[in-house]
Amino acid sequence: MSNQKIWFVTGASKGMGLLLTKLLLNTGHKVAATSRNLGLLKSNVGLENDLFLPIELDITNSRDVKLAINQTVQYFGGLDVAVNNAGFSFIGSLEELTDEEFRKALDINLFGTVNVIRASMAQFRKQRSGRVINIASAAGYIAGLNIGSYVASKFAIVGLTEALALEAKHLNIKPTVVLPGSFRTNFLDEGSLNYAKTPIAEYESADTYRSYAERAGKQPGDPQKLALELVNLANMENPPVHLILGPDSFKMIMDKRAQDLEEFEAFKKISLSTNFE
Rank of each mutant, 00 (worst) to 15 (best):
Q4K: 02
L19P: 02
L19A: 05
T21P: 03
T21V: 06
T27R: 01
S35G: 04
S35M: 03
N37K: 04
L41I: 01
S43I: 06
G46Q: 07
L47K: 06
N49G: 04
L51G: 12
V65L: 08
K66W: 00
A68V: 07
V73A: 14
Q74F: 00
A82T: 11
V83Q: 07
G92L: 11
E96M: 14
L97R: 01
F102Q: 04
G112S: 05
G112V: 07
V114G: 02
V116S: 06
V116H: 04
I135K: 02
S137Y: 02
A138T: 05
A139V: 09
S153Q: 00
V158I: 07
L164S: 01
N172Q: 14
I173L: 00
V177I: 06
V177R: 01
S182Y: 12
S182W: 09
D189W: 04
E204Q: 15
T208N: 11
A213F: 03
A213P: 02
G221V: 08
G221W: 07
K225D: 13
A227L: 07
A227H: 08
L228D: 15
L233M: 15
H242Q: 15
L243M: 15
M254N: 13
E265K: 12
K269C: 13
S271D: 12
S273A: 08
N275V: 13
N275R: 13
